[in-house]
Amino acid sequence: MSDDPLFQPAQVGDISVKNRIVMAPLTRSRAAAREVPSDLAPTYYRQRAGAGLIVTEGTQIRPDGQGYVSTPGIYSPAQLDGWKKVTDAVHEAGGRIVAQIWHVGRISHPDLIGGAQPVAPSAIRANSKTFLPNGDFGPVGEPRALTLDDIKAVVEDFGRAAKNAVSAGFDGVEIHGANGYLIDQFLKDGANKRTDEYGGPIENRVRFMTEVVDATVVAIGAGRVGIRLSPVTPSNDISESNPQPLFDLAVSELSRRKIAFIHMVEGATQGPRDIVPDFDFAKLRNLFGGTYIANNGYNGEFARERVANGEVDLVAFGRYFISNPDLVERIRRNAPFAEPDRATFYGGGEKGYTDYPTLEVA
């Protein structure tokens, strides 16, 4: 199988990977007290170290960046100690792992962030829900608009989170710029109604994203920085009236910064790939000079085809990595994928987390 395009090594910026299969970020809501990665997290990620690259679950850069119950952070010494156990386990198993660093912006609730008000580019409440500490799945809170000083502080905290990630042993970071969270809120006109230098024309709306990227590049180097984008997804009540020129500009700016990769949600997150049929993802791939990681609706055959044709460089799989810790081996053997138990996606312990079976050794 040495000629299988999915099993060729690749260079992703400064990160060498053994194959073209990526584990996508997957929120599991299993962090322990004080948003520290749980004692099960090293086992969970080590089991999946067959991937060429693992991207962790979304990991908040500071307390008010949290949007769901029991998601881990990357800002306290205890959290970094917890993540060091994860990175050590993955590296011992021969894997590579980057931390997905995020701030959820308006997709939060005061009960999750110490009674504070969620923040956003504009004071527009999202028609979205989240998991709360009392067990409810309820509407997100009313946000306040970030001031210019607030924006500067968030940018600095992204850079600090990147530095923390590398100190905890990560091979790099993926900035979460997708799925209706804070960076996506600044990018898209459905959530960004600002009239200052961060709002209005697309040149202004990409500014927050580029400042965050610049801060992480200064912190750890461009070759260890990637970003996830979702140009046309409606997730978390996000919308954009004219996505093609916006993302043409955004990706061009990212390419100029020579970051390691972009991780593209092609279509609606966990939904149809053709939700905006005339959107040109191939153009974005051609505009970007680094590694293009594709995500959404892939199986082994489709992934092989697109990598072989040079349409994408790597392919990320999400929910099937939940139920197939040996997903890479299943793709290698063309074996069927086990279906995940949706009831155990969020919260809980070993069940649906570290107890999925693997194939017998060939």
Rank of each mutant, 00 (worst) to 15 (best):
Y356I: 13
Q47G: 04
R46E: 11
P5R: 01
A10F: 14
T43F: 00
Y181K: 00
V173L: 00
Y298E: 04
P272Q: 02
R144D: 09
I113V: 13
L148A: 06
S2F: 08
F279P: 06
L254C: 02
K152Q: 14
A308L: 11
P340C: 09
V328T: 14
R273A: 15
G347V: 04
V55G: 05
E311N: 08
Q47V: 05
E197S: 13
K188A: 04
R125L: 01
I175V: 12
W83S: 02
N164M: 07
D196M: 05
T130P: 06
P42H: 09
S239P: 12
P143K: 04
F337K: 01
K193S: 14
M209C: 12
Y320S: 13
G82W: 13
N19K: 08
Y181N: 00
D189P: 11
A335M: 07
D39F: 02
R319A: 11
A219W: 12
T56V: 10
Y356R: 08
S235H: 14
G318F: 02
T216A: 10
I97T: 09
E301W: 07
V225R: 01
R342C: 00
A162G: 03
S230I: 06
R330V: 05
D184Q: 13
G67P: 03
T56N: 06
G135H: 10
T195H: 15
A33K: 13
I275W: 02
I107M: 07
R257W: 07
R228S: 02
Q185H: 10
F302E: 15
G82C: 04
G271C: 09
G50E: 03
G82I: 12
P118Q: 06
G13T: 03
E211M: 10
Y346H: 10
V212S: 03
A268N: 13
P42R: 09
D14T: 11
T43C: 00
P143H: 03
P245S: 09
D280M: 03
I124A: 00
V212E: 00
V166Y: 05
N236V: 07
F247I: 13
F317Y: 11
P357S: 04
R106T: 08
N179S: 09
W102R: 05
A294N: 08
A93G: 00
M23Q: 06
S252M: 02
G159N: 11
A338D: 12
H103Q: 11
L146R: 08
P110H: 05
A78Q: 13
L6K: 07
V166W: 04
V69I: 13
R224V: 14
G159R: 14
Y75W: 10
G177S: 04
N324E: 08
F321R: 08
V251T: 11
G58F: 11
V328K: 01
A49C: 05
D3E: 13
Q117Y: 01
P121R: 03
A123W: 10
V55T: 05
V315H: 08
Y356M: 11
